[in-house]
Every structure is written in C-alpha cells, then in structure tokens.
C-alpha cells in the first residue's frame, strides 16, 4: 500500500505503527527526504522542529497523526481512509481549533489500537 513512499516518524510514534508502514512497503527516512511526516505528539521536540521549519511556513510540511496508519490497518477498504482527516496541528493551536470544531478524530484512542490487528 505504501510502496516506494518515504515516511518520517517522530519518536512519539509507536513501533507497531512504524512496523505497519514498513510491512506495507513504506520506507523510513529523515524529515528532509520524507513524503509523509508522522507524529503522535505535537509537542514532542522532534515534531516541534518541523513546526519551526522554513518548510512548514512555506506550506510544504504538513504533519499527520500516525493514527492514520492504525485506521488504515483496521479498515476493510484501506484506500477509503481519508488522510486529510488526520492533520496534526501545532499543540498551541489545538485548543482553539477544538473549541470551533470539536475533538480531533485521532483523539479517540480506543479506535486506533493496532496491536489487536494481525499483520498482513
């Protein structure tokens, strides 16, 4: 599913989610070379570095919550999971955003348990 794609992972992302990425053909790379930036914690120093980069200000470094991968793992139709619903904004903005649109999809932890999923 992720054949030929490069992913960067914040250290806040669990090994199980990284493994799923690799099992599905994805490669792990540094942030500069990555097509996808994954994090589970917007305030982790690794992810903060992305938010404070020139690339981010130039609209070319969107961080996605790594629960996207869990959602894909658990979905029957893997391509039906909308990546766009897993945007992870900087921690300092989350409160304001939540006030306007309610909780983020990735805040429902129980939905994204990948451990139960048997590896393909």
């Amino acid at each position: 599913m992720f054949q030929g794609q490069r992913g960067w992972f914040c250290r806040s992302v669990s090994q199980a989610l990284r493994q799923f990425w690799v099992d599905q053909g994805g490669m792990v790379s540094d942030a500069q070379a990555a097509d996808f930036l994954f994090s589970c914690d917007a305030s982790h120093p690794d992810t903060l570095r992305i938010y404070q980069s020139l690339e981010y200000t130039e609209d070319s470094a969107t961080v996605f919550h790594a629960y996207y991968l869990a959602a894909v793992a658990n979905a029957e139709k893997k391509n039906s999971v909308a990546l766009g619903h897993f945007v992870l904004p900087p921690a300092c903005l989350q409160k304001e955003i939540r006030r306007k649109i309610g909780s983020f999809i990735w805040e429902q932890d129980e939905k994204f348990q990948i451990e139960k999923h048997s590896r393909a």
Binding site: Q5, D35, V63, L83
Partner: peptide, 11 residues
C-alpha cells in the same frame, strides 16, 4: 492518499 502527502497537502 495516492495524490496527497505532507508536501502538497497544505498547498
């Protein structure tokens, strides 16, 4: 997703 990534999503 095939057409989306961290580089082009915001644009």
């Amino acid at each position: 997703r095939k057409l989306l990534n961290s580089r082009n999503f915001s644009k």
